[in-house]
Design a protein around this nucleic acid. Structure first.
Lengths: 235, 235
DNA sequence: TCCACCCTTCGATGACGGGCGAAATGTCGG
DNA sequence: CCGACATTTCGCCCGTCATCGAAGGGTGGA
């Protein structure tokens, strides 16, 4: 890891993302889960052969990892840096017009709550950060003493996250809300706990997640104030 | 500015960056200055006709702005969001091997001090943030009272930066140093003053900047501690 | 052992896009 | 109004790459 060099050349990596099929694959993987090659082919709307060729290129370029399990090959993003690139690109990309009712429903689900690789995003993610700040649990770049207690009570391994080589608790601009949610090692650790507790579960739409009834109660008890997400349920 | 949509499609923007010639043009513009079409053609190593075609596409895609001045057309990045995308891409891109002595000199200059669109980066940028933190002028996401005084004394319009719609003072991972420098509205405001005072001036290499003798003295007086940059001059 | 299934490799096809030179457009200085 | 210069537009060539069907290679279940 010795930085020896002159200007990085960003063109090859950009070229990997530039193909619509590969972009669809990468976006699907932003959900954080590893998906099988066949699923990815279906999501991207191409034949298995085509998807396989694309996955080979993404692998070669270091954008994805693969884990072989029996006759399946599960692909996932190669790390959070890759997810960050995709998110930043999304911020400056036009959002295509809504074409169908189904798409607009999916859009609303994604805006409400989704994973950004390994941490919570969308209104839910932004709202969570707001509550942490309002309650004096987070001061903009670190957890306060009160926050340390709150998160320990939930079962979040704050010390472990702090030990990570990754940035601890950076704010991360949400591309739908245009406001910050919590990213980094802490954001990932908290999100992990939210899933373990069953407060959120993965939705049917690839990257979407949904607040469960336990989650609604747990979070409102935790913060004793307004709802974490908008009151109107997304249908 | 109503976010209505479903998933953004990142492929078109990525495709704009994916061409090596366009990537060279965009990277050159990361210096923050507006450059004429002819200069960009030379930098990218293509004919004027080719560069023009690329610039038209970048313009169409909203990645660059153009300002016409007489028979010249000066192109510049369309905003700091674009610069952020390029920086994040650079972080996950391989750095090509050094081919010549001239390139390795340029590489060292860029690693020492450069602009990242509108704020200071490289060892100089990272060092500046370190000094601000060490001196208790910056607490990780905002300026302290002491910092407010220090910067006011320099002539930095902190209040103006705070009023900006842009994020005020986010830390920004430097892709050569792999540590943070100061970005956002405040990073830009400070960098502007550093240039106005002649503490830094633009170097011959596109994005590089160099510390002047006044700058060395001014900064060391300001922080009364170690040098802001490494002691060995870059030759 | 054989079949069903998942995935990759192979070979062929077709389209998209970057490249240049030459000519056209526009701008400045006289 | 004219010649020098910056930039764009035009026409053409050519390489690259996405795509698919069919065949091949592994893996798991019966």
């Amino acid at each position: 890891m010795e930085p020896i060099a002159r200007d990085a050349d960003i063109a090859p990596v950009a070229a990997l993302i530039a193909d619509p099929t590969r972009a669809a694959i990468l976006t699907a993987l932003l959900g954080g889960r590893a998906l099988a090659a066949g699923e990815l082919a279906r999501v991207a709307g191409v034949s298995a052969a085509t998807a396989s060729a694309h996955l080979a290129k993404l692998l070669e370029g270091g954008l994805v990892d693969v884990v072989r399990q029996g006759r399946h090959r599960y692909y996932r993003l190669a790390g959070h840096e890759i997810a960050e690139v995709l998110e930043v690109l999304a911020r400056i990309s036009a959002r295509p017009p809504v074409r169908s009712l189904r798409q607009s429903r999916q859009a609303r689900l994604l805006e409400e709550a989704r994973t950004c690789y390994d941490h919570l995003a969308g209104r839910a993610g932004v709202g969570l950060l707001d509550r942490l700040k309002e309650g004096g649990y987070y001061d903009g770049h670190d957890v306060t003493a009160a926050g340390e207690r709150l998160l320990a009570g939930l079962g979040v391994d704050v010390a472990g996250a702090r030990r990570s080589r990754r940035r601890f608790a950076p704010e991360c601009l949400d591309w739908t809300e245009r406001r910050s949610h919590l990213g980094g090692a802490l954001g990932a650790a908290i999100t992990e706990v939210l899933f373990e507790r069953g407060w959120y579960r993965r939705g049917s739409v690839p990257r979407a997640v949904v607040l469960t009834e336990e989650g609604r109660q747990g979070l409102s008890a935790l913060f004793r104030s307004k709802e974490l997400t908008s009151v109107t349920p997304v249908t």
